[in-house]
């Protein structure tokens, strides 16, 4: 369903050149939940932005259901729902009005927009704030509204970049429930997260990315086996080569004997 073929992404030129991704290849099958793990600056967000057609690869090719993300970007966007941690909502419109707007943009019938909006409002436990201006929303409320917008056109592929970032435990649980529901409905999901428990609970396969390259990819069992580690967190640190000061990690877990 999703295929990254030798994908590289370079930002800037000359001395300012940054190689964010270097020949990244992986596939995600239909109905699969793929977790992309990696430290900050590893290339997770770049990968997901490339997949959602917001960025173009410098080298290589990405296809979604056989569609090229560069040549057929509009068709690709029609099939995906994208949520990124750097998205924001402001302005005088309410979540309901925004659902209506994005429904119209996706050419969904008015009645259907209303039905889907009501369903999402219930599912996301948006209470009565969906009628208020989004500029008055808290971080959690905004995240719920953004998830609603990403799912409104009922896409087959859902790309969530750090979906629980900055959320309190209650809102985080709501988001997790949504992800489970999507999994049960057979949707294909790519989720980037730094919360290992989410990856462990949800993902069919996991890829750990570091410094622009995929270091390991497989099911949880395969990763444990390859790394010889008992849990994902230890496997993660084993793969990225431990904690270094320049990356700012403060790993306090026990050292393996």
């Amino acid at each position: 369903m999703i295929q990254f073929k030798e994908v590289s992404k370079i930002f800037g030129t000359g001395k300012k050149e940054v190689r964010a991704l270097d020949k990244v290849s992986f596939t995600v099958g239909s109905g699969e939940i793929f977790g992309l793990l990696g430290p900050n600056g590893a290339g997770k967000t770049t990968s997901l932005r490339l997949l959602s057609t917001l960025l173009k690869p410098t080298q290589g090719q990405i296809t979604v259901a056989g569609l090229d993300t560069v040549k057929e970007s509009q068709e690709v966007r029609n099939r995906i729902g994208f949520l990124s941690s750097d998205m924001n909502l402001t302005g005088s419109l309410s979540a309901r009005e925004l659902f209506r707007f994005f429904g119209d943009l996706n050419h969904i019938e008015e009645e259907e927009i209303a039905n889907r909006s009501n369903r999402l409002i219930g599912q996301l436990k948006m209470g009565d704030f969906y009628e208020r201006k989004v500029e008055t929303y808290s971080t959690g409320m905004k995240q719920k509204a953004l998830i609603g917008i990403a799912l409104l056109h009922d896409p087959d592929i859902i790309i969530f970049d750090e979906p629980t970032n900055g959320l309190d435990i209650i809102t985080g649980r709501v988001v997790l429930d949504i992800l489970k529901d999507l999994k049960n409905r057979g949707k294909t999901l790519i989720v980037s997260t730094h919360i290992m428990s989410i990856a462990e609970k949800l993902c069919d396969r996991i890829g750990i990315i570091h410094k622009g390259t995929i270091r390991i990819i497989g099911t949880l069992e395969e990763i444990y086996e390859k790394t010889g580690e008992p849990d994902l967190e230890e496997a993660f640190f084993s793969v990225i080569g431990g904690v270094t000061e320049d990356e700012g990690y403060h790993h306090r877990s026990k050292k393996r004997a």
Partner: peptide, 14 residues
């Protein structure tokens, strides 16, 4: 600046 454009650009609209 407010990071509200990405959500529109990630949609199917041309």
């Amino acid at each position: 600046e407010r990071q509200t454009l990405t959500i529109l650009l990630a949609n199917r609209v041309s």
